[in-house]
């Protein structure tokens, strides 16, 4: 009997520790807390970024300049000022056609933004910046 109770106590302790661990893990998960702090990318915007921008503006990007200027994964975790400044730059380079760079499009025609994608991304960036300024 005593053996059985001991087993139950140990099992309960184990389960509690596991639960605690999971909860602690959740709190420390930087991605979760970042997402809560700032905007998230809507699905359609995320798809455009993944397909057209991510090849350079992410950890897998080869150009250091591109990574220095903008990392889409890091954007939601930046300070409010940096987020607005980045979005302002995104809008500018979409408007003046600087992005995606012609060099990249030449090698990889799929990276070209359609007019629709360009305006979707632009309008999302503008709304996101306006929300941050409210």
């Amino acid at each position: 009997m005593a053996m059985k109770i001991m087993c139950i106590i140990i099992a309960a302790a184990g389960v509690s520790l596991l639960l605690l661990g999971v909860m602690a893990g959740k709190q420390n998960d930087p991605y979760t807390s970042l997402q809560e702090q700032a905007f998230t990318y809507p699905e359609n915007i995320k798809a455009i970024i993944d397909n057209k921008c991510y090849v350079c503006h992410s950890l897998k990007g080869e150009s250091e300049d591109a990574r220095d200027v903008l990392m889409w994964d890091d954007l939601p975790g930046l300070s409010k000022a940096r987020q607005i400044a980045s979005l302002d730059a995104v809008i500018e380079v979409l408007d003046n056609g600087m992005m995606p760079p012609q060099m990249v499009v030449k090698d990889n025609p799929d990276a070209q933004l359609t007019d629709e994608e360009r305006s979707l991304l632009r309008d999302w960036a503008e709304t996101a910046a306006d929300n941050l300024l409210k």
């Binding site: 000022a81 940096r82 607005i84 400044a85 979005l87 302002d88 730059a89 809008i91 500018e92 503008e126 910046a129 306006d130 300024l133």
Partner: peptide, 11 residues
């Protein structure tokens, strides 16, 4: 605009 200003100040 305010957005432009922050972009420029940051730059």
């Amino acid at each position: 605009s305010l957005r432009n200003l922050i972009g420029r100040l940051d730059a």
